[in-house]
Simulated assay, not measured.
Amino acid sequence: MKLGVFTVLFSQKPFEEMLDYVKDAGVEAVEIGTGGYPGSAHCNPDELLEDAGKLKAFKKAVADRGLVISALSCHGNPLNPNKEHAKASHDILMKTVRLAEKLEVPVVNTFSGTPGDHEGARYPNWPVAPWPPEYREVLKWQWEEKIIPYWKEAGKFAEEHHVKIGLELHGGFSVHTPATLLKLREAVGEVIGANLDPSHMWWQGIEPVGAIKILGKEGAIHHFHAKDTVIDQDNVNMYGLTDMQSYENLQSRAWQFRTVGFGHSLKEWADILSALRLSGYDYVVSIEHEDALMSIDEGFRKAVANLKQVMPSESLSEMWWV
């Protein structure tokens, strides 16, 4: 496995300065934002697609430092009933797929999106309960009329450009659990897989090792984020796991994101990484920092240090003891 970082946390640094910084910190791979929610501070898809010289220089800057690009990321909502938002998310996804092919990057990460509840809807609707029965009707309509048709076309486009789609299993979006990911994958094909982030499993009550076993059995893990979550049971008792408070309400929130090792023990992280390797995933573990209790630099460096203690990085050897 290679240790990487989702570089949007260093958006304030110029591209090559950022590469030098993360290389010095000990990572081997970078995941780069191309637009949508992550922004495009280090990568302008229009510019790189239109200018072969700039594309070559971009690739060289990464390669000269001994780094690889694990994924391009353009998280958005192409199913949003707000047509302007949906079009922007769709357009950047298509451009990112084309750019990934040119850069020889195998994975594009994004969200599945969330539709509205009917053709005239103004806002996305995320049904999470089977009763009253109208929620099931909304969910059925969303999958049959919006989610599957959209991703069949988008998946076909990605396949034509030799790129896989890594959907982040994130609350608020239609694909947010192993079951919903596999449902879409069954309808669309193996081009669809997970950008699996344990932090979003924990707050949904899903054990990451269990999720890895489920998805790994199907070869459905295309990319992996390293981010932790801490759950405050007293606050869960008040607000539940679907806590709608701002992430800024640190003292009262039911859960919040933490740097690797500050929500769950390194033993649990060792189990996660071992499960990944056992499932056949031997690609990049990409650090994502969203810890409000640590600075960007400190949170990132502590995540690097903690993961280096437990992450297998060498190729498997023969079982000499067998």
Rank of each mutant, 00 (worst) to 15 (best):
N125W: 11
I148C: 00
R122L: 12
H161W: 14
P130S: 12
P124E: 06
K146Y: 02
S174I: 03
I148S: 00
I165Q: 05
K152H: 00
E137Y: 10
F157E: 02
H161C: 09
A154Y: 01
G113S: 02
I148Y: 00
A154W: 00
G116F: 06
E134F: 14
H161N: 15
E153F: 06
A154N: 06
L167D: 04
V128D: 08
G171M: 07
L139Y: 06
F111P: 02
K140N: 05
H162V: 05
R122K: 15
W141T: 02
W143M: 05
H118T: 10
P149K: 11
E153M: 10
W141K: 06
G113Y: 06
G120M: 11
T114M: 07
G171Q: 13
I165F: 00
P124T: 14
N125E: 09
W131R: 08
H162D: 15
A121H: 10
I147F: 05
H118E: 09
V138T: 15
E159V: 07
G113K: 07
N125C: 14
E137R: 13
P149M: 08
P115E: 03
H118A: 08
F157C: 10
E119I: 09
A129Q: 09
W151Y: 14
H118K: 09
Y123C: 09
L167P: 02
V128Y: 11
K146I: 00
E160S: 11
L167Y: 06
K140A: 07
G166M: 08
V108D: 07
L169R: 12
K140D: 10
V163W: 08
L167V: 04
A158I: 01
V108P: 13
V138P: 02
N109I: 10
F173G: 13
G166A: 11
G155I: 00
H162C: 12
W126A: 12
T110S: 11
K146D: 01
A154G: 03
H170G: 11
T110F: 03
S174W: 01
W131S: 12
E134P: 10
